[in-house]
Design a protein around this nucleic acid. Structure first.
Lengths: 206, 206
DNA sequence: TAGATTGTTAATCGATTAACAATC
DNA sequence: TAGATTGTTAATCGATTAACAATC
């Protein structure tokens, strides 16, 4: 059971460390240090050491961190050492791009179910998966014991789809819909809305 | 000129306020309060009032905020009261979805240039825009005075594309490539990597 | 050994929140 | 007027960083 006293902001940085370590391993490096990691990411070495210290001692004085060892530890901590099944709701342009994306499996995820409410799409296939009707969403997700969903529906449809996901027992939702969705406290929601990033950056334009 | 003493974290929340106000306006509401806004977003009313106070006084005691007035003020502050042109680099599945996305214009952005380095794609059209060769990236972006780019290339190509964008005078980059890119200090970079969100949420799975 | 780097502590820094006078 | 809500101050809370003993 994860220690819930660990700040959420710390958990949010672990995947970034993991991603950077993977790049280093691919480049043939064997050891790294908090200083080197920090330089890559633009954060302080102290922060990296502090973050990791919440979970154990993974380094050696003088030599730093063994990259493959630290990678394995972070994967274990984040529970991505086994592959997590993900349901994808909404198969428009964006949903299609997500379904085709080859970058999930390496990092612990696999889209194993597709749903849409457009009769024209239902029954067609993407990457070997049949697009299913909303009707089947609750039972399919339960049967497959899927705990994570990605939401790529129009924002007008987001809350409705969310309500079905919650009924199906989904515990985590990554939503691409540009709207705040309501969920019970036990369901985690994260959002991706590119326009929020663009608007933020526009403020800083010269 | 924006007051640079305003914390970046505050700027990051303004687009969220703006998005919520738009939803309220669409629902026919005329006034709202910091309390109501906070409830929608799951943040405290004090934080909303504090954030807004960096930029002026936009509310009235007793009645709260006029939604269309506050919307106009936030758009002005974020500089999205005029439409910003955006270049899109990389027209794979994701780039295609971005190019087709209808949700940008309403919120201040318009994709006006597409680039790819795949000879098979160069010269073909998406939504009325011709996909141009990398060769033309620097000059086209300069000529069109584009200041913002979205990066949807494979991660192996991200730094190379970024270097060209920087030479072209781009000031802000929204990157979908799962890798940290290096830019000069005057260029703002934001990242979207869905796997980071998924891995973070997986930690909290029961 | 000498140099390097960890994990941890304490200090600093910055963000959030509670409270309330002002006032619509 | 009475009730509601702002904008702001001061207090609280939490995150980041500097520093260093331990030790590889």
């Amino acid at each position: 059971m994860p220690d819930t006293s660990i700040p959420e902001i710390v958990i949010g940085r672990l995947p970034i460390y993991l991603r950077t370590l993977s790049r280093m391993a691919a480049a043939g490096k064997v050891y790294t240090s908090s200083h080197e990691l920090g330089q890559h990411l633009g954060i302080s070495s102290a922060q990296i050491r502090k973050d990791l210290s919440h979970f154990g001692e993974f380094g050696k004085q003088g030599t730093g961190y063994n990259i493959s060892f630290l990678t394995a530890q972070l994967k274990r901590i984040l529970k991505v050492d086994s592959v997590q099944d993900v349901a994808l709701i909404g198969v428009g342009d964006l949903g299609r791009a997500i379904a085709h994306y080859q970058g999930f499996l390496d990092r612990g995820f696999r889209v194993t179910a597709l749903f849409d409410n457009d009769p024209e799409k239902i029954g067609t296939k993407i990457g070997g998966l049949v697009i299913q009707d909303y009707e089947r969403m609750e039972t399919d997700i339960r049967q497959q014991e899927i705990r994570i969903a990605m939401l790529a529906v129009p924002f007008t449809e987001a809350q409705n789809a969310t309500d079905i996901l919650v009924k199906a027992g989904i515990q985590a939702i990554l939503s691409y819909a540009p709207i705040s969705i309501k969920v019970p406290a036990h369901v985690h929601v994260e959002y991706i809305d590119p326009v929020l990033h663009l608007q933020k950056m526009t403020f800083f334009l010269e």
